[in-house]
Simulated assay, not measured.
Amino acid sequence: MLYIVATPIGNLEDITLRALRIFREAEFIVAEDTRKTGNLLKHFGISKKSFLSLHKFNERRQIVKIISLLKEEKKVALVSNAGTPLVSDPGERLIKEAYKEGIKITAVPGPCAVINALVLSGFSTRKFLFLGFLQKKRNSRLKELKEAKSTKATLIIFESPFRIKKLLEDLAEVFGGKTKVAILREMTKVYEEIRIGLIEEVRDSLGEKVKGEITVVVENER
């Protein structure tokens, strides 16, 4: 059986009791970064586990091996570096192949940066659209944003601290500087920071160097 297991996005106290039980029972753990996941399990006193790495560079090769283990009725847990697997992380192809082979799959819910950012923003949760990381080329990025604007749904975007100011400039161009955004940095961690305001105000409030993991939420009901 394949378990899709969510892990903390920052604060280790957010791990669930069920996730810990599955980690203890699993015969194999499939991880994006085996060292990082190994450290997480070690923190909770779980050791001597068999790991398999799964990332965009080895996905095709590893899926064959993982499916083979699942056919042997091995208990396999799939995790990402943080949060809920498959959300802007590897694993989608594995799930599709597992279903094709008739393998039983279940999810062990828990932390998710997308939902965490949405509820902290204070914007409408009735209808929302997750865009992940936008295209790096500006023209492609602007096209994505213009298409998303037409949905009238609250938008959730992942962004690098090195590109956050450029993203805010693009948002101002597409949505107008008077649109409200929420910038959530280092969620659940010691230095968690939330900035909510008009795009131009939030952009001007950022310092020269922005650090940490960032999620952007855009109010888009107008």
Score class of each variant (00 low, 15 high):
35 R>S: 10
36 K>I: 15
36 K>V: 15
36 K>R: 15
36 K>W: 05
37 T>C: 12
37 T>N: 06
37 T>M: 06
37 T>F: 01
37 T>W: 02
38 G>W: 01
38 G>T: 03
39 N>G: 11
39 N>P: 01
40 L>F: 13
41 L>F: 03
41 L>T: 00
42 K>I: 06
42 K>Y: 06
42 K>Q: 09
43 H>S: 10
44 F>D: 12
45 G>E: 04
45 G>F: 03
45 G>D: 05
46 I>P: 01
46 I>V: 01
47 S>W: 01
47 S>I: 11
48 K>G: 14
49 K>D: 02
49 K>W: 01
49 K>A: 01
51 F>N: 10
51 F>R: 11
52 L>Y: 14
52 L>Q: 04
53 S>T: 15
53 S>N: 10
53 S>C: 11
54 L>E: 13
54 L>Q: 11
55 H>P: 03
56 K>P: 12
56 K>E: 15
56 K>N: 14
57 F>T: 12
58 N>S: 11
58 N>D: 08
59 E>T: 12
60 R>H: 11
60 R>W: 02
60 R>G: 04
61 R>Y: 09
61 R>H: 09
61 R>M: 09
62 Q>I: 02
63 I>D: 02
63 I>C: 07
63 I>V: 14
63 I>F: 06
64 V>M: 09
64 V>D: 12
65 K>N: 11
66 I>R: 00
69 L>A: 06
69 L>E: 05
71 K>S: 10
72 E>L: 14
73 E>K: 15
74 K>I: 00
75 K>S: 08
75 K>N: 07
76 V>F: 01
76 V>D: 00
76 V>K: 00
77 A>I: 01
77 A>P: 02
78 L>F: 05
79 V>S: 01
80 S>F: 05
80 S>Y: 04
80 S>M: 05
80 S>V: 09
81 N>K: 05
82 A>C: 07
82 A>L: 06
82 A>F: 05
83 G>A: 06
84 T>D: 04
85 P>A: 04
85 P>F: 05
85 P>E: 02
86 L>P: 02
86 L>G: 04
87 V>R: 06
88 S>Q: 08
89 D>C: 08
90 P>T: 02
90 P>F: 07
91 G>I: 13
91 G>K: 14
91 G>N: 12
92 E>Y: 09
92 E>M: 03
93 R>Q: 07
